[in-house]
């Protein structure tokens, strides 16, 4: 597990950049944390970082998917699906959102992943965010689950170490 303090939004953005660089087709990021923990902010930075890395203009808006449940970003070589499952009542409802299509063909970033129940993929990178004190300070606990999840964690760990050096 990687545990890291995120002192401010710049630190959150740096983590998002590092993460965006190691994700590929079929990868799943499960973002957990209480209301206001910064899940959407981290997801937004990942989406912007991927656009930047692909030399694409940033999307005009990266809205919170709380109401629409999912926002799809098609630009770049690999699409990215950003889910917010907060309003889901039954795991089965996630299938209506074509989440399996996202798992197969895209990078999937999921807020409130616990709502997925049995449909949670075996391979994933879990990021738990929590607030520490006032303002924008956060703590991230990052755990790779499954073979691919551990691979992402290791890659992320090495990118972060280089960034820190």
């Amino acid at each position: 597990m990687i545990e890291m303090p995120l002192a401010d939004l710049a630190a959150t953005r740096a983590l998002a950049r590092a993460l965006a660089g190691v994700l590929g087709r079929g990868d799943v990021v499960a973002l957990s944390g209480a209301l206001g923990a910064g899940k959407t902010e981290l997801a937004r930075f990942v989406i912007l970082a991927r656009a930047e890395a692909a030399r694409l203009p940033p999307p005009a808006e990266v809205p919170s998917p709380t109401y629409t449940l999912v926002q799809v970003y098609e630009a770049g070589a690999v699409p990215l699906w950003h889910f917010d499952l907060y309003r889901l009542e039954r795991p089965d409802d996630a299938l209506e959102l074509a989440i399996e299509e996202a798992f197969a063909d895209a990078i999937t970033v999921i807020e409130w992943p616990d709502r997925l129940g049995p449909y949670m993929p075996d391979d994933r990178i879990e990021i738990a965010l929590s607030r520490t004190g006032a303002g924008d300070a956060r703590r991230a606990a990052i755990t790779g689950i499954g073979a691919r999840g551990r691979e992402i964690e290791a890659a992320l760990s090495s990118v972060l170490a280089k960034g820190a050096a």
């Binding site: 209301l35 206001g36 959407t40 808006e61 809205p63 919170s64 709380t66 109401y67």
Partner: peptide, 18 residues
């Protein structure tokens, strides 16, 4: 102008939840 993060209605709903 537009929101750079959450919409105001979402802020109302989440405040109510909290």
């Amino acid at each position: 102008g537009t929101t750079i993060d959450d919409a105001v209605g979402e802020a109302f709903d989440k405040t109510a939840k909290l």
